[in-house]
Nucleic acid binder design. Sequence first.
DNA 1: AGCTACATGGAACGAATGTTCGCCACCCAC
DNA 2: GTGGGTGGCGAACATTCGTTCCATGTAGCT
Lengths: 195, 195
Amino acid sequence: MGNPNRDHEYLAKLQDYFASYRSIPSYAVIGELLGMASKSAVSALVKRLSLAGYLEMSPDKRLAPTKRFFERELADFNVPAGLPAAANDAMSESLSVDDYLIPRPSSSILVRIKGDSMMDAGIFDGDIAVIEKRHAANLGDYVLAIVDNEYTLKELGRDKQGYLLIPHNPDFSPIRPTHSLEIFGVLTGLIRKYR
Amino acid sequence: MGNPNRDHEYLAKLQDYFASYRSIPSYAVIGELLGMASKSAVSALVKRLSLAGYLEMSPDKRLAPTKRFFERELADFNVPAGLPAAANDAMSESLSVDDYLIPRPSSSILVRIKGDSMMDAGIFDGDIAVIEKRHAANLGDYVLAIVDNEYTLKELGRDKQGYLLIPHNPDFSPIRPTHSLEIFGVLTGLIRKYR
DNA sequence: AGCTACATGGAACGAATGTTCGCCACCCAC
DNA sequence: GTGGGTGGCGAACATTCGTTCCATGTAGCT
């Protein structure tokens, strides 16, 4: 395999396209997109990518991406500088962000964080929390709780007087539930977007 | 229109199908799927769903789901008043988080954070950073830079002596590149997993 | 009942699809 | 060099696509 495989480059363009339009275009358009003049070249490419596990045929004979299609490479931080391009061949590990963060979609919801009460825990206003819905939690878990008809994300704690909700910000005080403490779910992931 | 619109039911089946196979089937198959015997009925349905904003034509005239296609019914969970500002942004199983965090897959890479030098910016050891590969950045951006053959994530700053890399942790000092400063990419997203 | 509105069935049609085949250009190993 | 493998080109092909037009059936209304 002396030939530097251009298939990764082709795959990348397909990934970009799918990210934009949520569909795999026809062979003719793929060719146009990748700079191929004939559909047979595309056909060959599709066979290769299918073998590699990035594409598959849906039951109705339509071309569709596989799970692996959505995986991203995970590079290690400490890579002593190879060339930046080396990150491509680093072949460390790949993962799909969704699978990584949301293993149980049906019991997970996304909640946008309001306020700074968990700032010291690295949870900022505007972040999105992945909450797994359940009513039980362990001490030390970050829980989305319902207190006085309001949702709030805090650490679940306990002292001799009972359970409390501990903020991670010196400007806030622990909340001691007056009546009952209802736990909506447990924080299992966090997503932040910059810019 | 005595008939309660069955379109929602049809939409639901399409959503299920797409969730399974990541593609929209042909009109014939859609008909089969929904119990319609003719493609003209499907054609009409597609027009309705397109008008409602659930489907659209991709640039190559292929049927594709829109963002709204992936929105989840809020009515699904009967949460007492004041549903936690649910992130309507992106909710679905497969595409959502990827789509939200990684608009350009081919130029994005995932990097696992090592060390606490950005702790005060809410970026912790073990978090995963979404880096968009490019060589230019603005002051104030968090950049993945290559300094002395090591990758490091810092804020890009500048003073009268030139560029520097600013950590967000009082225990660390700003880094002043001795020779050259190479920027590998810019931080565009952050992912953290609990437990 | 008679009428209208509308969703669907059914068939015909041109356009576009993906497959296939033979051929060429290039690169590497020998 | 020579040979073989590989990726791409170009054209022909049957199949399938989505559109279109008209007929049919049903529901609601007067």
